[in-house]
Design a protein around this nucleic acid. Structure first.
Lengths: 205, 205
DNA sequence: GGCGTTGTTGGACAGGCGCACAATAGCCTC
DNA sequence: GAGGCTATTGTGCGCCTGTCCAACAACGCC
Protein backbone atom coordinates (compact mmCIF):
# COMPACT_ATOMS: atom_id res chain seq x y z
CA UNK A 1 0.00 0.00 0.00
CA UNK A 2 1.14 3.55 -0.71
CA UNK A 3 3.31 5.14 1.89
CA UNK A 4 1.89 8.00 3.92
CA UNK A 5 3.26 10.45 6.41
CA UNK A 6 2.73 9.67 10.04
CA UNK A 7 -0.13 12.06 10.55
CA UNK A 8 -1.85 11.10 7.29
CA UNK A 9 -1.73 7.44 8.14
CA UNK A 10 -2.87 8.01 11.68
CA UNK A 11 -5.74 10.02 10.30
CA UNK A 12 -6.67 7.30 7.84
CA UNK A 13 -6.67 4.67 10.56
CA UNK A 14 -8.93 6.71 12.80
CA UNK A 15 -11.26 7.37 9.89
CA UNK A 16 -11.40 3.68 8.97
CA UNK A 17 -12.00 2.71 12.59
CA UNK A 18 -14.83 5.20 12.78
CA UNK A 19 -16.42 3.77 9.65
CA UNK A 20 -16.33 0.28 11.09
CA UNK A 21 -17.65 1.47 14.45
CA UNK A 22 -20.61 3.15 12.82
CA UNK A 23 -21.46 0.00 10.91
CA UNK A 24 -20.88 -2.69 13.52
CA UNK A 25 -20.81 -0.87 16.82
CA UNK A 26 -17.85 -0.13 19.04
CA UNK A 27 -17.82 -3.45 20.86
CA UNK A 28 -17.75 -5.46 17.62
CA UNK A 29 -14.98 -3.45 15.98
CA UNK A 30 -11.75 -5.45 15.58
CA UNK A 31 -8.25 -4.64 14.44
CA UNK A 32 -8.70 -6.79 11.35
CA UNK A 33 -11.93 -5.05 10.44
CA UNK A 34 -10.21 -1.69 10.52
CA UNK A 35 -7.26 -2.98 8.49
CA UNK A 36 -9.57 -4.44 5.87
CA UNK A 37 -11.52 -1.20 5.71
CA UNK A 38 -8.25 0.66 5.09
CA UNK A 39 -6.97 -1.96 2.68
CA UNK A 40 -3.77 -2.52 4.66
CA UNK A 41 -2.42 -5.11 7.01
CA UNK A 42 -3.50 -5.38 10.60
CA UNK A 43 0.00 -5.05 11.97
CA UNK A 44 0.18 -1.48 10.73
CA UNK A 45 -2.43 -0.35 13.17
CA UNK A 46 -0.32 -1.28 16.17
CA UNK A 47 2.49 0.87 14.84
CA UNK A 48 0.29 3.89 15.41
CA UNK A 49 -1.83 2.86 18.36
CA UNK A 50 -0.60 1.18 21.48
CA UNK A 51 -3.77 -0.77 22.00
CA UNK A 52 -7.27 -1.30 20.72
CA UNK A 53 -8.54 0.80 23.59
CA UNK A 54 -6.56 3.79 22.30
CA UNK A 55 -7.80 3.32 18.77
CA UNK A 56 -11.45 3.07 19.75
CA UNK A 57 -11.07 6.10 21.98
CA UNK A 58 -9.43 8.08 19.15
CA UNK A 59 -12.18 7.15 16.72
CA UNK A 60 -14.91 8.04 19.17
CA UNK A 61 -13.05 11.22 19.98
CA UNK A 62 -13.16 12.21 16.34
CA UNK A 63 -16.86 11.52 15.90
CA UNK A 64 -17.83 13.25 19.12
CA UNK A 65 -15.42 16.09 18.46
CA UNK A 66 -16.94 16.80 15.07
CA UNK A 67 -20.42 17.08 16.55
CA UNK A 68 -19.18 19.27 19.36
CA UNK A 69 -17.25 21.54 17.02
CA UNK A 70 -20.18 21.83 14.64
CA UNK A 71 -22.54 22.76 17.43
CA UNK A 72 -20.04 25.17 18.99
CA UNK A 73 -19.53 26.90 15.64
CA UNK A 74 -23.26 27.08 14.95
CA UNK A 75 -23.90 28.52 18.39
CA UNK A 76 -21.15 31.10 17.92
CA UNK A 77 -22.81 32.25 14.69
CA UNK A 78 -26.07 32.93 16.52
CA UNK A 79 -26.95 36.54 17.30
CA UNK A 80 -28.31 36.97 20.83
CA UNK A 81 -28.17 34.49 23.70
CA UNK A 82 -31.70 33.22 23.10
CA UNK A 83 -31.02 32.57 19.44
CA UNK A 84 -27.77 30.86 20.37
CA UNK A 85 -29.62 28.59 22.73
CA UNK A 86 -32.18 27.76 20.06
CA UNK A 87 -29.34 26.90 17.69
CA UNK A 88 -27.81 24.71 20.36
CA UNK A 89 -30.94 22.57 20.58
CA UNK A 90 -31.44 22.31 16.85
CA UNK A 91 -27.83 21.32 16.20
CA UNK A 92 -27.53 19.03 19.21
CA UNK A 93 -30.50 16.92 18.31
CA UNK A 94 -29.34 16.72 14.73
CA UNK A 95 -25.87 15.69 15.85
CA UNK A 96 -27.19 12.93 18.08
CA UNK A 97 -29.27 11.30 15.42
CA UNK A 98 -29.02 7.85 13.92
CA UNK A 99 -25.71 6.12 14.52
CA UNK A 100 -24.21 8.96 16.55
CA UNK A 101 -26.20 8.24 19.66
CA UNK A 102 -25.62 4.53 19.38
CA UNK A 103 -21.93 5.39 19.45
CA UNK A 104 -22.40 7.30 22.69
CA UNK A 105 -24.30 4.35 24.09
CA UNK A 106 -21.45 2.03 23.15
CA UNK A 107 -18.93 4.42 24.64
CA UNK A 108 -20.77 4.61 27.96
CA UNK A 109 -21.01 0.85 28.17
CA UNK A 110 -17.42 0.22 27.06
CA UNK A 111 -16.17 2.87 29.45
CA UNK A 112 -16.53 0.38 32.26
CA UNK A 113 -13.79 -1.76 30.73
CA UNK A 114 -11.73 0.57 28.52
CA UNK A 115 -9.91 3.38 30.34
CA UNK A 116 -9.13 5.46 27.25
CA UNK A 117 -12.74 5.32 26.09
CA UNK A 118 -13.89 6.30 29.55
CA UNK A 119 -11.58 9.29 29.65
CA UNK A 120 -12.69 10.42 26.20
CA UNK A 121 -16.40 10.18 26.84
CA UNK A 122 -16.08 11.97 30.17
CA UNK A 123 -14.09 14.76 28.57
CA UNK A 124 -16.67 15.28 25.85
CA UNK A 125 -19.54 15.13 28.27
CA UNK A 126 -18.01 17.92 30.31
CA UNK A 127 -17.30 19.92 27.15
CA UNK A 128 -20.96 19.76 26.13
CA UNK A 129 -22.00 20.87 29.58
CA UNK A 130 -19.57 23.78 29.48
CA UNK A 131 -20.81 24.91 26.08
CA UNK A 132 -24.39 24.89 27.27
CA UNK A 133 -23.75 26.48 30.64
CA UNK A 134 -21.71 29.28 29.05
CA UNK A 135 -24.56 29.99 26.66
CA UNK A 136 -26.97 30.12 29.58
CA UNK A 137 -24.65 32.35 31.59
CA UNK A 138 -24.45 34.78 28.68
CA UNK A 139 -28.24 34.89 28.62
CA UNK A 140 -28.36 35.55 32.35
CA UNK A 141 -25.78 38.33 32.09
CA UNK A 142 -27.78 39.89 29.27
CA UNK A 143 -30.89 39.76 31.48
CA UNK A 144 -32.86 37.67 28.98
CA UNK A 145 -32.74 34.48 31.03
CA UNK A 146 -33.23 33.71 34.69
CA UNK A 147 -31.09 31.02 36.23
CA UNK A 148 -29.47 30.81 39.61
CA UNK A 149 -27.11 28.02 38.75
CA UNK A 150 -26.25 27.72 35.04
CA UNK A 151 -23.96 24.75 35.70
CA UNK A 152 -26.70 22.69 37.29
CA UNK A 153 -29.28 23.81 34.75
CA UNK A 154 -27.00 22.68 31.95
CA UNK A 155 -26.69 19.24 33.54
CA UNK A 156 -30.44 18.97 33.84
CA UNK A 157 -31.09 20.02 30.25
CA UNK A 158 -28.42 17.73 28.86
CA UNK A 159 -29.73 14.88 30.97
CA UNK A 160 -33.19 15.31 29.55
CA UNK A 161 -31.81 15.48 26.02
CA UNK A 162 -29.76 12.34 26.49
CA UNK A 163 -32.57 10.54 28.24
CA UNK A 164 -34.99 11.35 25.44
CA UNK A 165 -32.46 10.28 22.82
CA UNK A 166 -32.01 7.08 24.76
CA UNK A 167 -35.72 6.35 24.66
CA UNK A 168 -35.88 7.30 21.03
CA UNK A 169 -33.14 4.82 20.18
CA UNK A 170 -34.50 2.14 22.47
CA UNK A 171 -37.92 2.07 20.81
CA UNK A 172 -37.78 4.09 17.69
CA UNK A 173 -41.50 4.26 17.14
CA UNK A 174 -42.74 5.60 20.47
CA UNK A 175 -40.65 8.75 20.56
CA UNK A 176 -39.48 10.53 17.45
CA UNK A 177 -36.94 13.26 16.97
CA UNK A 178 -39.58 15.93 16.71
CA UNK A 179 -40.73 15.02 20.20
CA UNK A 180 -37.19 15.01 21.55
CA UNK A 181 -36.48 18.54 20.41
CA UNK A 182 -39.86 20.05 21.28
CA UNK A 183 -39.99 18.47 24.74
CA UNK A 184 -36.46 19.46 25.64
CA UNK A 185 -36.99 22.98 24.32
CA UNK A 186 -40.13 23.35 26.40
CA UNK A 187 -38.24 22.21 29.46
CA UNK A 188 -35.40 24.62 28.84
CA UNK A 189 -37.81 27.52 28.38
CA UNK A 190 -39.40 26.78 31.73
CA UNK A 191 -36.05 26.26 33.43
CA UNK A 192 -34.61 29.54 32.17
CA UNK A 193 -37.63 31.76 32.54
CA UNK A 194 -38.18 32.18 28.81
CA UNK A 195 -41.62 32.61 27.33
CA UNK A 196 -43.03 29.51 25.61
CA UNK A 197 -42.05 29.40 21.97
CA UNK A 198 -39.12 31.75 22.26
CA UNK A 199 -36.61 28.99 21.62
CA UNK A 200 -37.83 28.12 18.15
CA UNK A 201 -40.72 28.04 15.78
CA UNK A 202 -40.92 24.25 15.82
CA UNK A 203 -44.33 22.77 16.65
CA UNK A 204 -44.40 22.16 20.37
CA UNK A 205 -46.46 19.91 22.52
CA UNK B 1 -22.86 -31.66 41.19
CA UNK B 2 -26.21 -32.38 42.82
CA UNK B 3 -29.09 -32.95 40.52
CA UNK B 4 -31.84 -30.36 40.40
CA UNK B 5 -35.26 -30.12 38.85
CA UNK B 6 -35.49 -28.28 35.57
CA UNK B 7 -36.90 -25.11 37.03
CA UNK B 8 -34.50 -25.09 39.96
CA UNK B 9 -31.50 -25.49 37.74
CA UNK B 10 -32.71 -22.89 35.31
CA UNK B 11 -33.17 -20.57 38.22
CA UNK B 12 -29.69 -21.24 39.51
CA UNK B 13 -28.16 -20.58 36.11
CA UNK B 14 -29.95 -17.26 35.76
CA UNK B 15 -28.90 -16.28 39.25
CA UNK B 16 -25.29 -17.18 38.58
CA UNK B 17 -25.33 -15.32 35.28
CA UNK B 18 -26.70 -12.26 37.03
CA UNK B 19 -23.95 -12.40 39.62
CA UNK B 20 -21.30 -12.50 36.93
CA UNK B 21 -22.98 -9.73 34.96
CA UNK B 22 -23.03 -7.46 37.97
CA UNK B 23 -19.36 -8.05 38.57
CA UNK B 24 -17.95 -7.96 35.06
CA UNK B 25 -20.61 -6.32 32.96
CA UNK B 26 -22.93 -7.93 30.44
CA UNK B 27 -20.54 -7.81 27.49
CA UNK B 28 -17.75 -9.55 29.41
CA UNK B 29 -19.93 -12.34 30.77
CA UNK B 30 -19.06 -15.74 29.29
CA UNK B 31 -20.52 -19.21 29.51
CA UNK B 32 -17.48 -20.44 31.39
CA UNK B 33 -17.73 -17.64 33.92
CA UNK B 34 -21.32 -18.55 34.68
CA UNK B 35 -20.47 -22.24 34.97
CA UNK B 36 -17.62 -21.53 37.35
CA UNK B 37 -19.85 -19.28 39.43
CA UNK B 38 -22.37 -22.13 39.69
CA UNK B 39 -19.68 -24.74 40.26
CA UNK B 40 -20.82 -26.86 37.34
CA UNK B 41 -19.66 -27.57 33.82
CA UNK B 42 -20.23 -25.15 31.00
CA UNK B 43 -22.04 -27.68 28.86
CA UNK B 44 -24.92 -27.71 31.31
CA UNK B 45 -25.82 -24.17 30.49
CA UNK B 46 -26.53 -24.98 26.88
CA UNK B 47 -28.98 -27.64 27.98
CA UNK B 48 -31.17 -24.93 29.43
CA UNK B 49 -30.47 -21.99 27.17
CA UNK B 50 -30.33 -22.09 23.43
CA UNK B 51 -27.74 -19.36 23.17
CA UNK B 52 -25.76 -16.86 25.19
CA UNK B 53 -28.16 -14.18 23.98
CA UNK B 54 -31.06 -15.96 25.67
CA UNK B 55 -29.14 -16.40 28.90
CA UNK B 56 -28.05 -12.78 29.10
CA UNK B 57 -31.59 -11.68 28.32
CA UNK B 58 -33.00 -13.96 31.03
CA UNK B 59 -30.53 -12.68 33.61
CA UNK B 60 -31.21 -9.05 32.74
CA UNK B 61 -34.92 -9.82 32.78
CA UNK B 62 -34.62 -11.06 36.35
CA UNK B 63 -32.67 -8.05 37.59
CA UNK B 64 -34.92 -5.56 35.86
CA UNK B 65 -38.03 -7.48 36.83
CA UNK B 66 -37.12 -7.40 40.51
CA UNK B 67 -36.69 -3.65 40.47
CA UNK B 68 -39.93 -3.18 38.58
CA UNK B 69 -41.87 -5.46 40.92
CA UNK B 70 -40.40 -3.79 44.00
CA UNK B 71 -41.35 -0.36 42.72
CA UNK B 72 -44.80 -1.49 41.64
CA UNK B 73 -45.45 -3.03 45.04
CA UNK B 74 -44.18 0.04 46.87
CA UNK B 75 -46.35 2.32 44.73
CA UNK B 76 -49.39 0.14 45.35
CA UNK B 77 -48.87 0.48 49.11
CA UNK B 78 -48.96 4.27 48.85
CA UNK B 79 -52.13 6.03 49.94
CA UNK B 80 -53.19 8.79 47.56
CA UNK B 81 -51.93 9.43 44.00
CA UNK B 82 -49.47 12.09 45.11
CA UNK B 83 -47.96 9.86 47.76
CA UNK B 84 -47.80 7.02 45.24
CA UNK B 85 -45.88 9.23 42.86
CA UNK B 86 -43.48 10.26 45.60
CA UNK B 87 -42.91 6.60 46.39
CA UNK B 88 -42.28 5.94 42.71
CA UNK B 89 -39.42 8.42 42.63
CA UNK B 90 -37.86 7.29 45.86
CA UNK B 91 -37.98 3.63 44.87
CA UNK B 92 -36.97 4.19 41.25
CA UNK B 93 -33.83 6.08 42.08
CA UNK B 94 -32.91 3.52 44.69
CA UNK B 95 -33.50 0.71 42.20
CA UNK B 96 -31.30 2.32 39.59
CA UNK B 97 -28.34 2.74 41.87
CA UNK B 98 -24.86 1.30 41.65
CA UNK B 99 -24.56 -1.67 39.34
CA UNK B 100 -28.21 -1.66 38.30
CA UNK B 101 -27.90 1.26 35.96
CA UNK B 102 -24.67 -0.05 34.50
CA UNK B 103 -26.68 -3.16 33.64
CA UNK B 104 -29.24 -1.06 31.80
CA UNK B 105 -26.44 0.71 29.97
CA UNK B 106 -24.97 -2.63 28.93
CA UNK B 107 -28.39 -3.85 27.84
CA UNK B 108 -29.03 -0.79 25.67
CA UNK B 109 -25.66 -1.16 24.00
CA UNK B 110 -25.88 -4.93 23.56
CA UNK B 111 -29.41 -4.60 22.22
CA UNK B 112 -27.96 -3.56 18.89
CA UNK B 113 -26.44 -7.00 18.46
CA UNK B 114 -28.49 -9.35 20.66
CA UNK B 115 -32.16 -9.73 19.69
CA UNK B 116 -33.30 -11.33 22.94
CA UNK B 117 -31.65 -8.61 25.02
CA UNK B 118 -33.24 -5.98 22.83
CA UNK B 119 -36.69 -7.48 23.26
CA UNK B 120 -36.26 -7.72 27.01
CA UNK B 121 -35.05 -4.17 27.54
CA UNK B 122 -37.79 -2.76 25.35
CA UNK B 123 -40.43 -4.71 27.25
CA UNK B 124 -39.20 -3.45 30.59
CA UNK B 125 -38.90 0.10 29.36
CA UNK B 126 -42.52 0.07 28.31
CA UNK B 127 -43.55 -1.51 31.60
CA UNK B 128 -41.90 1.30 33.57
CA UNK B 129 -43.62 3.86 31.42
CA UNK B 130 -46.98 2.18 31.95
CA UNK B 131 -46.52 2.07 35.70
CA UNK B 132 -45.72 5.76 35.80
CA UNK B 133 -48.39 6.88 33.37
CA UNK B 134 -51.04 4.93 35.26
CA UNK B 135 -50.01 6.61 38.48
CA UNK B 136 -50.24 9.98 36.80
CA UNK B 137 -53.61 9.16 35.29
CA UNK B 138 -54.94 8.22 38.71
CA UNK B 139 -53.79 11.59 39.99
CA UNK B 140 -55.50 13.36 37.12
CA UNK B 141 -58.72 11.45 37.68
CA UNK B 142 -58.60 12.36 41.37
CA UNK B 143 -58.16 16.03 40.41
CA UNK B 144 -54.89 16.36 42.28
CA UNK B 145 -52.71 16.51 39.18
CA UNK B 146 -52.99 18.34 35.88
CA UNK B 147 -51.77 16.58 32.79
CA UNK B 148 -53.19 16.51 29.29
CA UNK B 149 -51.19 13.51 28.15
CA UNK B 150 -50.06 11.18 30.94
CA UNK B 151 -48.36 8.86 28.42
CA UNK B 152 -46.11 11.59 27.07
CA UNK B 153 -45.48 13.06 30.50
CA UNK B 154 -44.36 9.65 31.72
CA UNK B 155 -41.88 9.41 28.85
CA UNK B 156 -40.49 12.82 29.66
CA UNK B 157 -40.10 12.11 33.35
CA UNK B 158 -38.50 8.74 32.74
CA UNK B 159 -36.17 10.27 30.18
CA UNK B 160 -34.99 12.85 32.66
CA UNK B 161 -34.51 10.19 35.31
CA UNK B 162 -32.52 7.99 32.95
CA UNK B 163 -30.53 10.90 31.61
CA UNK B 164 -29.61 12.05 35.09
CA UNK B 165 -28.66 8.52 36.09
CA UNK B 166 -26.54 8.35 32.96
CA UNK B 167 -24.65 11.49 33.91
CA UNK B 168 -24.32 10.29 37.47
CA UNK B 169 -22.74 7.06 36.30
CA UNK B 170 -20.61 8.75 33.69
CA UNK B 171 -18.95 11.11 36.15
CA UNK B 172 -19.81 10.04 39.59
CA UNK B 173 -18.56 13.15 41.30
CA UNK B 174 -20.40 15.86 39.40
CA UNK B 175 -23.93 14.61 39.96
CA UNK B 176 -24.94 12.61 43.00
CA UNK B 177 -28.04 10.62 43.73
CA UNK B 178 -29.46 13.34 45.89
CA UNK B 179 -29.39 15.66 42.88
CA UNK B 180 -30.96 13.06 40.61
CA UNK B 181 -33.97 12.59 42.82
CA UNK B 182 -34.48 16.25 43.76
CA UNK B 183 -34.12 17.50 40.19
CA UNK B 184 -36.44 14.91 38.71
CA UNK B 185 -38.98 15.46 41.48
CA UNK B 186 -38.94 19.20 40.83
CA UNK B 187 -39.51 18.58 37.16
CA UNK B 188 -42.37 16.21 37.80
CA UNK B 189 -44.03 18.70 40.13
CA UNK B 190 -43.90 21.39 37.46
CA UNK B 191 -45.05 19.00 34.75
CA UNK B 192 -48.05 17.78 36.73
CA UNK B 193 -49.17 21.03 38.27
CA UNK B 194 -48.18 20.06 41.79
CA UNK B 195 -46.99 22.59 44.32
CA UNK B 196 -43.24 22.57 44.96
CA UNK B 197 -42.33 20.18 47.73
CA UNK B 198 -45.48 18.11 47.52
CA UNK B 199 -43.60 15.12 46.17
CA UNK B 200 -41.32 14.64 49.15
CA UNK B 201 -39.51 16.29 51.99
CA UNK B 202 -36.08 15.78 50.45
CA UNK B 203 -33.91 18.91 50.20
CA UNK B 204 -34.55 20.42 46.80
CA UNK B 205 -32.59 22.79 44.63
C1' DG C 1 24.56 4.91 -5.51
C1' DG C 2 24.96 2.93 -1.01
C1' DC C 3 22.84 3.07 3.44
C1' DG C 4 20.20 3.83 7.44
C1' DT C 5 15.68 4.92 8.87
C1' DT C 6 11.06 3.80 8.93
C1' DG C 7 6.52 2.66 7.07
C1' DT C 8 4.54 -1.76 6.00
C1' DT C 9 3.68 -6.65 5.62
C1' DG C 10 1.75 -11.11 6.81
C1' DG C 11 1.79 -14.59 9.62
C1' DA C 12 2.59 -16.70 14.31
C1' DC C 13 1.22 -16.91 18.96
C1' DA C 14 -1.45 -17.62 23.09
C1' DG C 15 -5.66 -17.20 24.66
C1' DG C 16 -10.67 -16.91 24.70
C1' DC C 17 -15.12 -17.52 22.78
C1' DG C 18 -19.85 -20.08 21.84
C1' DC C 19 -21.34 -24.32 20.94
C1' DA C 20 -21.81 -29.52 20.15
C1' DC C 21 -21.55 -34.17 21.37
C1' DA C 22 -20.43 -38.67 23.17
C1' DA C 23 -19.88 -40.54 27.65
C1' DT C 24 -21.18 -40.70 32.48
C1' DA C 25 -24.02 -40.57 36.62
C1' DG C 26 -28.01 -40.34 39.16
C1' DC C 27 -33.05 -40.73 39.68
C1' DC C 28 -37.78 -42.84 38.70
C1' DT C 29 -40.70 -46.46 37.20
C1' DC C 30 -41.96 -51.05 36.65
C1' DG D 1 -33.11 -55.13 40.91
C1' DA D 2 -33.42 -53.98 35.89
C1' DG D 3 -34.12 -50.72 32.50
C1' DG D 4 -34.88 -46.29 30.70
C1' DC D 5 -34.75 -41.42 30.99
C1' DT D 6 -32.44 -37.26 31.72
C1' DA D 7 -29.41 -34.18 34.16
C1' DT D 8 -24.58 -33.49 34.00
C1' DT D 9 -19.84 -33.89 32.55
C1' DG D 10 -15.63 -32.99 30.04
C1' DT D 11 -13.59 -32.41 26.07
C1' DG D 12 -12.82 -30.76 21.67
C1' DC D 13 -13.82 -28.23 17.46
C1' DG D 14 -13.69 -24.06 14.70
C1' DC D 15 -13.39 -19.51 14.87
C1' DC D 16 -11.94 -15.10 16.36
C1' DT D 17 -9.46 -11.91 19.33
C1' DG D 18 -5.33 -8.45 20.46
C1' DT D 19 -0.61 -8.38 20.23
C1' DC D 20 3.96 -9.28 18.69
C1' DC D 21 7.83 -9.73 15.47
C1' DA D 22 11.05 -10.88 11.84
C1' DA D 23 11.27 -9.86 7.10
C1' DC D 24 10.45 -6.64 3.26
C1' DA D 25 10.21 -2.26 0.77
C1' DA D 26 10.37 2.54 0.02
C1' DC D 27 12.12 6.93 1.11
C1' DG D 28 15.73 10.58 2.54
C1' DC D 29 20.49 11.62 3.44
C1' DC D 30 25.36 11.74 2.62
Amino acid sequence: MPRMTSSERRDAIVEAALNVMVGKGMAATTVRDVAEQMGTSSGLIHHYFESMDDLLAAAFDRAAGRDLDATRAAVARGGGPVERLAVFFATYVRAEQDWAFQLWLDAWAEAARRPAVRETSQRHNVAWQQLLSETIRAGVNADVMVCGDPEAAAWRILSLLDGLALQAVAHRLLINRQAVISWSVSYAEAELGLSPGSLGCLPRR
